[in-house]
Design a protein around this nucleic acid. Structure first.
Lengths: 233, 233
DNA sequence: CAGTGGTCTAGACCACGGT
DNA sequence: CCGTGGTCTAGACCACTGG
């Protein structure tokens, strides 16, 4: 009988994962109870519990009291996308980052924005248009709206030097956001900003951000032609 | 002195999070040690440990032995994208899903594909072109390549009825993938498939999938005009 | 009701990494 | 060195839920 000295929740987790991949436990099959696995692996139940909890977090298994643990039938795969600042994206490509403020206006929120992030109509917002460059080439254009009521200091911030994304990350570091991605054709303004022909297919990201249920900012970011967003899962 | 009866790692986790959001602990600030927090909350250190571990997983705090736990300076926000089957995407919109096989060829892997997913040149692959509809309207076009060596059964599978994505999910349920997103202009073929003018801006997803380090499949999925992929973080 | 996972505890030992 | 987090243990009680 082979005795396993090295227990450890990672070994348990990986071994269980191996058996699932090897179809020792088929999709939908019931796994042994935690107490049984603990006995088999020669460790405490808490160790098995943590191992299985991690697999449940990954979506590999489903756990229910009384009925037990089963291999997920249709694993929902999740891709994780890092939402980074423009500076980070550019410098990760070993390019020089440059930022420019295009326009800045304090104004009442337009109707579409109010409904987009849930502002009361006519709230004062700061509208910023900014450009971000990688090695002198256009990287992306950002159309941003900041809710003055949520972040009063923004009205006095110097966005000539610090990009609004970075400024907000420092001012409101922990926030929730909705994000969406789409393809759009360059209009005349975008074509000029991104130095491409009108009608070029462009990758666009929109983000609505809240802090403790209060709307903070909305940003529409349009990337240079050919931009590719990558992830892994 | 208010005594907290309800301990629980969630209460600890949420209270620590609250203090971070309220700037009780500033960005970069050192938190009390686990033993101190355990004493304050009147619970075991393991409970505090689990609470802080979850916040570390979320990227809210950084933990290092000896130096302690600090509030993350630049929280890396991660968006989680559900990668679902076309059927799921369509039916979640309360639309009727329909699938059609456009073409199917067994052939040697072209060079670009070999380098894309790491196949030895000339490996046999199954090339499938498929269409997916929502309420009769084009939803997306899928250009898929399957490595026969990795999934031999695929050569005999009936892709006339079951979409390759669903078939592979059942055949190779647990796999790793690289995924990327981009905008592209419709060429003549895509324009015809998706019933739009040539040159229309289209949202495109590419996925390369491996199972235990062996390349399984590559898919390029082009969505109908106006498609928007949503997420939240 | 009874079996299963969910969680907590008090204590222990270890590994890492500043000082 | 030695404080900090990382992990394990043995035991306990609880909450949910299927039969």
């Amino acid at each position: 009988m082979p005795q396993q000295k090295r227990t450890g929740f990672q070994e348990v987790r990986d071994e269980v994962m191996r058996r699932i991949e090897a179809r020792v436990w088929e999709q939908g099959a019931l796994l042994p109870a935690e107490t049984d696995l603990a006995e088999e692996f020669g460790c405490a139940r808490a160790t098995v519990n943590r191992a299985l909890r991690e697999l449940a977090d990954r979506g590999v298994i489903d756990r229910k009291r009384k009925s037990g643990t089963r291999v997920t039938l249709q694993p929902v795969k999740q891709a994780k996308l890092d939402i980074a600042t423009a500076r980070r994206l550019v410098e990760d490509r070993n390019a020089a980052y440059r930022y420019a403020l295009v326009s800045r206006h304090l104004q009442p929120a337009p109707g579409w924005l109010s409904s987009q992030i849930g502002l009361s109509p006519g709230s004062e917002v700061l509208h910023l248009e900014t450009m971000h460059y990688a090695d002198g080439q256009p990287f992306h254009f950002e159309d941003r709206w900041i809710n003055i009521a949520a972040v009063p200091e923004s009205a006095d911030a110097d966005f000539g030097a610090v990009p609004p994304g970075e400024w907000l990350l420092a001012a409101v570091p922990f926030s929730n956001a909705d994000v969406s991605f789409t393809a759009t054709a360059a209009d005349d303004a975008l074509a000029q900003y991104l130095a491409c022909p009108s009608g070029t297919a462009l990758f666009q990201m929109e983000r609505s951000t809240w802090f403790q249920d209060a709307p903070v900012t909305f940003a529409r970011i349009t990337f240079h032609p050919g931009y590719r967003m990558r992830s892994r899962y």
